[in-house]
Nucleic acid binder design. Structure first.
Lengths: 238, 238, 238, 238
DNA sequence: CATGAATGAGTCTTCATTCAT
DNA sequence: CATGAATGAAGACTCATTCAT
């Protein structure tokens, strides 16, 4: 092939990739702003500054667009989590690592995280995206991590690894949700940093084996005394 | 009581209320099965075994249906949470109380919880339900709880109440999500009980003030040594 | 059930059927006027004087609409043909019967016949309607008819029943096409009658066993003499 | 001939013509396979192994593509028919000639014939191709042929030339349709030959003047006795 | 109260056609 | 000539909502 043709092709390829990225970026922004169901392809096209039909040149349909957003974002996230989990390190380091990955994702692309959390991470039942490959996948991964930690004696003996996994990701997700939804004024980077650190620390404080029995003892008694009364108050939801 | 007009009217009222409840119940089930956007009014009507248009007798529109599901479920939940928070008790008891409320809701109506969590708790931006009255409301409530606890010295000094709130609800929500999505085999009530207990304990272990410095110290060092390398690995999202 | 409810239901049922028929009729007319691909659902709705969406209340989609037109028209046609074929009668009577059925269909609903012939009878390959259940079905039917006639000695011995079938339906279809397309001025009913009679007669004249060898003999010689020259002229289609 | 510039130009021209033919051939095949409306330009391009836009270099638009297919195929067909009609020969020879032309077309390019028959010969009303230049044109041509035959006394006196024309082309078209649609196993060339011969013979048997009154007489009586009953059975189309 | 036929605005999706390279 | 990215008009289809009975 001639030099020109090749160069042109490369340039075209680059431009194509450019366009595709533009559209994907626009989709993330629009999804973050109006939600998946609340936006039209036209919105994405307008946001991307391209013609209506071009979206369909790069993506089969609206669903695939969301899928791609999901795959790119969540896939990268999971990959980094996996890398942390695979390390041969103490659970303390791993928890810090997971937390770091989650917050770094937020710092790099808060709107992307918003879409992942709000639209796909727990996509409503019956939707295209399999939740077991989203939340479930993450939990499974963390589950393995905590299982190994337990086997190495790095975990409180009375805790199920699966519960630890749920708690860690739950804490991360909910706190990021709070940031994402603007429930917390994220004036400065320091604040985010601070939240991140607290999550790691508090979580670890709860799951590491405690040499001394700790302070939870008497509290437990208070709880037991109160429990039945609380329970009886529960009614069925209409 | 008279058995005449008044009784008839009551009976009629009761029957109406019955219908309404039937439809609401059907809505919860259908939302849980196919998601809010994935179902049609016709689905709700079929599930309830009533005629198409009857849904509109009892509910202004599809949104109000979801709102009502939300209000009934979430409203009740929040009310019970509020009751727990209002108690003059140690934070340990309160945390146990909040956890108990959440799990009791799951035990009583798992599908209702599913809908709340998946459909409305963090309804995508631009949707009818104000998220600040969902997740935000709960977090705010817990925030106050932890603030008071901090003021009473029941909380680790280095923790923001708001982070504690996020962590608690995050842990609860994620673990319930796991149950709700069937990620965990919920063969028996004992398993649920066990998960509930672990969440309380682990969470409390992380947030209560520690008399002894605890075991986290050397781990922290390991973390600090590793941190920068982890950080540098973060790449941009496409 | 109360008298009123029943009457209302019946009335409603009748009205529904009425609407459905109206739409079907409109579809036939619009298909006849603009062709299946050339018309929009909106055209059908407008022609029927109903709202857009109502078409979808009675028919799953555009295709089903065409299918229904086809089933109603062609199904009835085939049924009548089948009745004629089943008669225990001389092939002469049967051919007259088949011809009569075809022309009667045209007299009763020329536009319906037009749609059947132009749009579905030989729907282009890859289309929804299986042609083998259209043209093929008719030919198969006639084929059986002529097979029996041959067995009874009512057919020229040198003719394949299948060819007879093709010739009969071909003649009918082409002549009806001519009428339908307005290639012939159909001023009066007498003209149509006349065409019908001629088709039967000429066709029968060609397929009935000839006592005397007839006049075709020397013609055959002329043909043979000419044949090779004609053939050599054929070129390939680009 | 020089081997320089002129040859190069010719070669270029030939190559262009080659491309054009490739595309046209691809169009015929794709139309035959999926129908005109059922295929996209992309399908044609893929089949031809050329780029998307190249089709538009050689053909103004999709319609022109079909038009060209039609013109090439039908035009050639009509031209040959015209040649046969123009001969100064007995109607017997001419009918054999017309039949021969039709079948030869099928032998040379069955898919081309398929497209002509299914897609354009009776293009639905409102379509680009004027039907009077397709079926109508052929019928008109044959009409003249039979008119002349009638004037020369070569035709049964009671037949309209126009009906003869319709019957001949109808028989040809329907039998070719049967071949084209695979309704008949066309294992061998002999079968096709056989069908061709039978059509000519049977058709001629029906339209040539019969010296003796022939065998149709009593059949006619049976028909007349039966007719009214058949007629009364006609019902309305839903 | 109940019913479900009727309405029609809102969107997705397709695909012929153009155009810059 | 060739390519295929870009355009956008056209139209099928959905489904929330209304309304007459």
């Amino acid at each position: 092939m001639a030099r020109t043709g090749k160069a042109a092709a490369e340039e075209a390829g680059a431009r194509e990739s450019e366009r595709r990225k533009t559209i994907l970026r626009a989709a993330i922004d629009v999804f973050a702003k109006k939600g998946y169901h609340g936006c039209r392809i036209a919105d994405v096209a307008r946001e991307a500054g391209v013609a209506y039909g071009l979206v369909y040149h790069y993506f089969k349909n609206k669903d695939e667009l969301l899928q791609t957003v999901f795959d790119a974002g969540w896939g990268g996230f999971i990959a980094r989590i996996r890398e942390v989990v695979a390390r041969d390190a103490h659970i303390v380091e791993k928890v810090h690592g997971v937390t770091q990955v989650a917050f770094e994702a937020y710092r790099v692309d808060p709107r992307g995280v918003k879409v992942i959390i709000l639209e796909v991470a727990r996509a409503p039942a019956g939707e295209r995206i399999n939740r077991q490959s989203a939340v479930g996948e993450a939990i499974q991964l963390a589950n393995e991590m905590f299982e190994r930690a337990r086997d190495r004696g790095e975990l409180r003996a009375d805790l199920d690894p699966f519960v630890c996994a749920g708690m860690l990701f739950g804490a991360l997700e909910m706190c990021l949700t709070a940031l994402v939804l603007g429930l917390v004024d994220v004036q400065d980077e320091a604040m985010v940093e601070r939240v991140q650190r607290q999550i790691s620390d508090a979580f670890l404080g709860g799951i590491l084996p405690t040499p001394s029995t700790g302070p939870a003892v008497d509290a437990e008694d208070a709880w037991k005394r109160d429990r039945s009364s609380t329970r009886s108050k529960t009614e069925r939801r209409s």
